[in-house]
Design a protein around this nucleic acid. Structure first.
Lengths: 142, 142
DNA sequence: AGTGCCTACTTCCCAAAGGGAAGTATCGCG
DNA sequence: CGCGATACTTCCCTTTGGGAAGTAGGCACT
């Protein structure tokens, strides 16, 4: 039974990520990504903060992002930032300083997604011990 | 297997997914994945439901999952289910029916993650139009 | 004038992951 | 004894991701 009353048109809420052909499936594939989550969290101010200080969104330079997201290659960082800019989740601003600097900042759309991905990262961190315990049991049994 | 060090602190919030070496980084990489999100949502009852019916978690068979997640290969489905089982997010139950059937069901841990990834899928679907609009503007400019 | 340095990319190359299709194992039935 | 059904598993090839090196462009120093 097909639950869509209308095709995946631009105005309806008929998008369904379970369908391979739906645009939201491709969007989900983009967003459900390690670097996307970390870039958004970094621009959300989640990195390098004191435990008691609530995270506040902040603009960051390319080099700052590269430093915060340890292990990211320049290629992937650029690629991730470009796709997020294209999708309207962040803005890219070139500042004509001495050596040119570029800053990235979340848009309102990006901020609304931040609320979601932030929880994903927090979940991973707060449930890490549970997961590790399960893995040990699983690996011991097998 | 032996990596439960005190440096990351099993009880504290010392895990930090921004660090490449932190276990939670690897966990985030696993969870921030198209198929993980869709499997969890499917087992959460989000697929093929009428719009007014609230989603309720449900056990699903392998073949049911394969049908709901259109486009998934058997290989990736099996791989995703195995890793989620290993991490304690779902249970795998072999039912010795005529041809053997296997059912998958979310654990409490999986249910707590469902609350997060469900919002990710919902975000992708509900903001699809915004994203598409931004893409058109971006592509027209470039 | 030229050399070097800084930031922010871009390109090249290779290894790893993902996808498609076909093969395997097990069981009961006719 | 072969058939069909379910749930994988394996093989092979394409795509993606990562590491390292190269590019652009402007200023500063000698």
């Amino acid at each position: 039974m097909t639950t869509r009353t209308e095709e995946t048109g631009p105005s309806g809420a008929a998008y369904n990520a379970f369908l391979a052909v739906c645009p939201s499936r491709m969007l989900l594939d983009r967003l459900a990504n390690k670097w996307v989550v970390l870039v958004l969290c970094a621009l959300g101010g989640d990195a390098e903060k004191a435990p008691d200080v609530p995270a506040a969104p902040t603009a960051l330079r390319y080099s700052e992002l590269a430093r915060l997201l340890s292990g990211v290659s320049q290629k992937m960082l650029t690629q991730t930032l470009r796709s997020l800019e294209r999708d309207g989740l962040l803005t890219r601003t070139v500042v004509p300083t001495v050596p040119v600097t570029v800053t990235y900042e979340l848009t309102d759309l990006g901020l609304s997604l931040l609320g979601v991905v932030r929880r994903l990262r927090e979940w991973a961190q707060s449930h890490m011990d549970d997961v590790l315990a399960h893995r040990e049991k699983y690996d011991a049994r097998a």
